[in-house]
Design a protein around this nucleic acid. Structure first.
Lengths: 185, 185
DNA sequence: TCATTACAAAACACTTTGTCCAGTATCTAT
DNA sequence: ATAGATACTGGACAAAGTGTTTTGTAATGA
């Protein structure tokens, strides 16, 4: 890949991330992004079709970094005996997320949070599915999975945006204490 | 209040609600709203400062209807012995939400969901606070309250958008089964 | 070094926004 | 019923943003 492309792409990502810390996604204009990144208007549009595509690309890049190592590792684990390994797995994800917290804060707050959370949930769904599948309870599996995914993603948001004094281990413990399906058998 | 104002306000609300069923909040233009509502451009701006204010006003109106009766009733209850009354309270709210499901579907899906969820959470926070306050657990009350509010609001979303085959009682049961703080003592 | 590719800068038509005004219809109070 | 206040219409308006296109320049890789 051309070095020029890499440099431009990085500049746009960084400018966008910086802007996200200051203002809402919806209030950010393409003009502001290219001013901040110091690239031409047409250059932006050769890289990204729209502003939403830029956000999407940024989310993908972050999550690939956070979950790539993690998901590989997961496939080697056996979660059928539940409980403790699940907490470890969660802690592991929290550590990875913490590394990216600078960008995450911007992505969580404001409108973009919706889109960002959507992506986070997609990854979490994949991660939680095998864990939830074995449970038997009265609520439909569909619901329990959604509940787990939403509870955890909101936990991450709560942690990243304003409660970073807690360690990943503590947050994982808080989460496990509040959900009962971790002890369904 | 002038009947003309009421009529216009209602027309705009209805047009907006109708549009929300078809497309994202961000993709709806003021032009489309006033075309659908059949009111003049300047009329719109005398009623609502921006498109966001319209959404806000609509949310407020719906929630006042859903929670007004409910919150009054709550203050007469004693929740200190927990558990069952809480489930009843939740069921009650679900019934009220179900009545507004036509509008809610539009408000939940799409970008506006963020804003809408924000308002829903504000009301839920108020409702859950006395319930959560008496619990003692290792997680900070701050976290548990947030967890309850987010879990429940996401449950409502899951229900309204695509799982309306379940009754309010069933949904309340699903929720109570998945959260453990309902049994903290 | 030479063809290729990425970029800058500026101009472009187009859409949306929010404001403003003159004229018309509709309310409320007397 | 009438008068005065108030709400609406319709149109025009500047301002801002979008996405495309073009022409020329600079960097890249073979």
């Amino acid at each position: 890949m051309d070095r020029r492309q890499q440099k431009t792409r990085q500049a746009i990502f960084q400018a966008f991330g910086s802007l996200l810390e200051r203002k809402n996604f919806g209030d950010i204009t393409v003009q502001e992004i290219i001013d901040e990144a110091n690239v031409g208007r047409s250059t932006f549009y050769t890289h990204f079709e729209t502003k939403d595509e830029l956000l999407k690309a940024m989310c993908t890049e972050i999550f690939q970094h956070v979950f790539s190592e993690n998901l590989k590792q997961e496939s080697n684990h056996d979660f059928s005996h539940a409980g403790h390994d699940f907490e470890k797995e969660i802690t592991h994800v929290l550590y990875h997320l913490q590394e990216n917290r600078k960008n995450l804060r911007g992505l969580f707050s404001c409108e973009s949070g919706d889109i960002f959370m959507g992506y986070l949930k997609d990854y979490l769904r994949e991660m939680f599915l095998p864990q939830i599948d074995g449970l038997h309870c009265r609520a439909p599996a569909d619901y329990v999975l959604n509940h787990a995914v939403c509870s955890f993603s909101e936990t991450v948001k709560w942690w990243i945006v304003g409660h970073e004094q807690y360690s990943p281990e503590q947050v994982a413990e808080f989460f496990m204490e509040c959900v009962s399906y971790s002890r369904f058998s």
